[in-house]
């Protein structure tokens, strides 16, 4: 069954998109900004893992486990040292800064690593799959989906159960009043950024195991992540998961008929949602 298989592959792909998207969703929810370098950061993570892997004899899983927290620290620092400044200079500045960052990252990677495509060598893990009937679900794909769901559950728990999460929601509602109860917006934004960097690093590494990558792939990942957020509905993490899955499934199903149209079909789904259901599949709770 081609269609059933395509559906299953689409869900796995969509899981990866959701993993790309959840950080974008969090940052937009808290700071109302989109980091245009989001996709490029995933590629940076992939190259970091690639370099570490070739320079050391560490196993891939360990490299990944180290890269992710390192990225969250880098995310916190990027926010505090670079983006916070631009947040204060008005709404244009953050876009310009993150767009500049995106161009810098892409071209730096190009100079350092050339335009050659690479893959992260994950040995048998990359090639083995779970066979369910006629459908074969790759372990890498399953990992992506599980990480997406896991990340979203973790972020939700963080937001609803911890005091930092509570203050993050308060800051998202009303930063001035949040300051009156002691919230330091810079710290809150730093944490949101750390979450985004950590999840996008995971996504980048999973993507790099799944398929080959090169320095130019960042923007496409940003667009898919963005589409997942909008399709799902702004301000809802579960919506983002659903949006990612919908995007993956549509791309995958269309690819059965015409592989060259699959990305276009995803974009069209996004435009359809924009035209007919601008609040997204799962609208955020009305306040």
């Amino acid at each position: 069954m081609d269609v059933v298989n395509a559906l299953a592959q689409g869900l796995l792909l969509g899981g990866l998109y959701a993993l790309f998207a959840c950080g974008l969703s969090v940052v937009f929810g808290v700071m109302r900004i989109v980091n245009l370098a989001h996709g490029d950061l995933a590629i940076v993570a992939a190259f970091c893992a690639f370099v570490t892997l070739s320079a050391t004899s560490l196993p891939l899983w360990l490299v990944a486990v180290v890269t992710v927290p390192v990225f969250s620290v880098v995310g916190y620092l990027t926010q505090r040292l670079l983006l916070q400044r631009s947040l204060q200079s008005g709404p244009l500045a953050t876009l310009l800064v993150t767009f500049g960052l995106s161009v810098v990252i892409q071209n730096l990677l190009l100079e350092l690593f050339s335009a050659d495509t690479r893959t992260l060598d994950a040995g048998s893990f990359a090639t083995s799959a779970l066979e369910v009937g006629d459908v074969s679900l790759s372990y890498v794909g399953i990992t992506g989906l599980v990480l997406a769901v896991g990340s979203i559950v973790a972020i939700q728990l963080f937001l609803s159960r911890t005091s930092s999460g509570r203050i993050m929601r308060a800051t998202s509602d009303d930063p001035q009043t949040a300051a009156l109860v002691g919230a330091d917006a810079r710290r809150v934004y730093g944490i949101a950024s750390a979450i985004a960097f950590a999840t996008v690093a995971m996504a980048g590494i999973v993507m790099a195991i799944r398929s080959s990558f090169d320095p130019s792939l960042g923007p496409a990942q940003l667009l898919f992540a963005f589409e997942a957020v909008v399709i799902g509905g702004l301000g809802s993490l579960w919506g983002t998961l659903l949006g990612g899955l919908a995007l993956g499934v549509v791309q995958s199903l269309v690819a059965v008929a015409d592989p060259s149209s699959s990305v276009l079909a995803g974009h069209l789904l996004f435009l359809l949602v924009l035209a007919f259901r601008p609040q997204g599949l799962v609208p955020a709770r009305a306040s």
């Binding site: 005091s163 308060a170 509602d173 009303d174």
Partner: peptide, 26 residues
């Protein structure tokens, strides 16, 4: 501490969560 004009509760937080944000002052 200031109770601002117009109350300015956090709309996406419950009553108790609104109160708990005050703990943030440490």
């Amino acid at each position: 501490a200031l109770v601002p004009e117009g109350r300015r509760l956090f709309p996406s937080l419950t009553v108790e969560e609104n109160l708990l944000t005050g703990r943030n002052a440490g």
